[in-house]
Simulated scan of single mutants.
Amino acid sequence: MTTTVVRPVAIKIDPDTKERVKRLAAARHRTPHWLMREAISQYVEREEKREAFRQDTLKAWDEYQTTGLHTPPEKVDAWLSSWGTDNELPAPACHK
């Protein structure tokens, strides 16, 4: 069985933000502590996804610069527009 050790972390926020967190927590029937943990978790998850997308984009750009393979946007648009229709097109091929 794996146990996770939770360590306290202190952050400093201005009084106005602190009051806003308290009001929102009360409205949600949660503690300010829960609300801040949730906000941080959601932020980190969103930013990890954004960073993964950025890394995928950089990798694709590097691959394009190395191989020169691409698909013209009009072919991609036509393919995407055909999705869900009776005349769905196959994915367009990459070429130089």
Rank of each mutant, 00 (worst) to 15 (best):
Q42S: 12
D56H: 11
E63G: 02
L89M: 13
H33W: 01
A91P: 09
P73N: 09
V5P: 02
Y64S: 05
W34L: 04
T67P: 08
D77K: 05
A25P: 02
A52T: 12
R20M: 05
E47T: 11
E19N: 07
K18H: 09
A52D: 14
K59E: 15
A25R: 07
W83K: 13
V6P: 00
Q55N: 12
P90E: 14
T2G: 08
R37T: 08
V5K: 12
I11M: 11
E74Y: 00
P72M: 01
Y43K: 11
W79Q: 01
D62L: 09
P15G: 04
T3A: 08
F53A: 15
E47C: 10
S82W: 05
T3H: 07
V44T: 05
T4Q: 12
R20K: 11
Y64T: 02
S82M: 06
P15N: 04
D16E: 09
L80A: 03
E47R: 15
L69C: 06
D14E: 13
S82L: 06
D14R: 10
T3G: 04
K59D: 15
E38R: 10
T17A: 07
M36L: 14
A39K: 10
Q55V: 12
R46G: 03
M1K: 13
R37S: 06
L35F: 04
R30V: 07
E19T: 08
T2Y: 10
Q65I: 07
A60T: 05
R46V: 06
D77M: 03
Q42A: 15
